[in-house]
């Protein structure tokens, strides 16, 4: 049980459902009775490592996302103590992108953030292994070994990462950030590990009444997000790259 499940124990996208069906039965009998791995994900004991049985993901319904609304961005800045400035050297973990289809003229608005890929290019290129993917699918930067080479920023197809360009003070104790290291959206890992199982942006979107963002465990067939992506069409941004992103979009 305390054996860490490494991200290498990945399950191919198509096989995931089948695995879950079988896995659930096995988990129920073979592993500690009464404690299911899905349950662990919802409120993991603090001394247990995160598990690959969970895949955190986000579903964004662009038809509900309002043009000009930046509630999610503001909430992210507050939660992670970002300055909120938008100069070329300022960090932005989540941003609103306005789209216009060149052929049809259709307009969409959506939040863009780290897509938490299953096969993240940033992790592939990082020379020291500071960019890594946690077992539960959250892609993070270990600032203790980030040397600030910015190769991950070159490699990310979503422009999701920022370099901290200057000295910082008064960080959120739960969200360490500092000069010279690269950073990006963490799926509010501090909230997830606390068992809140949501992110600041999603909370804000719901509070504003848009309900355009949904966060949850893609591997849990009973979760709202898993049910929704199973029922309705959704897509990855730059699906051609085959990165199996954790963030999916509807309506584009």
């Amino acid at each position: 049980m305390s054996q860490p499940v490494r991200p290498e124990d990945k399950i191919e996208n198509g096989e995931r459902r089948a695995f879950l069906a079988a896995g659930a039965a096995v988990a129920g009998t073979a592993i500690a009775p009464g404690v299911l791995l899905y349950g662990m994900a919802q409120a993991k004991p603090a001394d247990q490592p995160v598990s690959a049985k969970v895949r955190w993901g986000m579903l964004i319904d662009t038809t509900k996302c309002a043009t000009g609304c930046t509630e999610c961005v503001t909430a992210c800045n507050t939660e992670n103590s970002l300055s909120g400035k938008t100069g070329p050297q300022d960090s932005q973990w989540i941003r609103k992108v306005e789209l216009k289809n060149l052929q049809t003229g259709a307009r969409h608005s959506l939040p863009m953030l780290c897509q938490h890929c299953e096969h993240p290019p940033c992790v592939d290129v990082c020379p020291t292994g500071a960019s890594f993917r946690r077992a539960d699918g959250i892609v993070l930067v270990d600032r203790h070994i980030c040397i600030g080479c910015r190769y991950c920023m070159m490699a990310c197809p979503y422009k999701a990462r920022s370099l901290v360009h200057e000295n910082l003070t008064d960080q959120n104790p739960e969200v360490p950030r500092g000069k010279g290291c690269v950073e990006s959206c963490t799926f509010c890992v501090q909230k997830v590990d606390r068992g809140e199982n949501t992110t600041a942006c999603v909370e804000a979107c719901n509070a504003a009444g848009h309900k355009a963002m949904l966060f949850g465990d893609l591997n849990d067939p009973e979760s709202e997000i898993a049910k929704t992506v199973k029922t309705y069409a959704s897509t990855e941004v730059r699906a051609d790259l085959n990165l199996n992103t954790g963030v999916r979009y509807q309506g584009i």
Binding site: V73, R95, L99, K159, V237
Partner: peptide, 12 residues
């Protein structure tokens, strides 16, 4: 990011 779309954002 979005082939076939014109895009704009605060992140350039």
């Amino acid at each position: 990011l979005f082939p076939g779309f014109e895009v704009s954002s605060s992140f350039y």
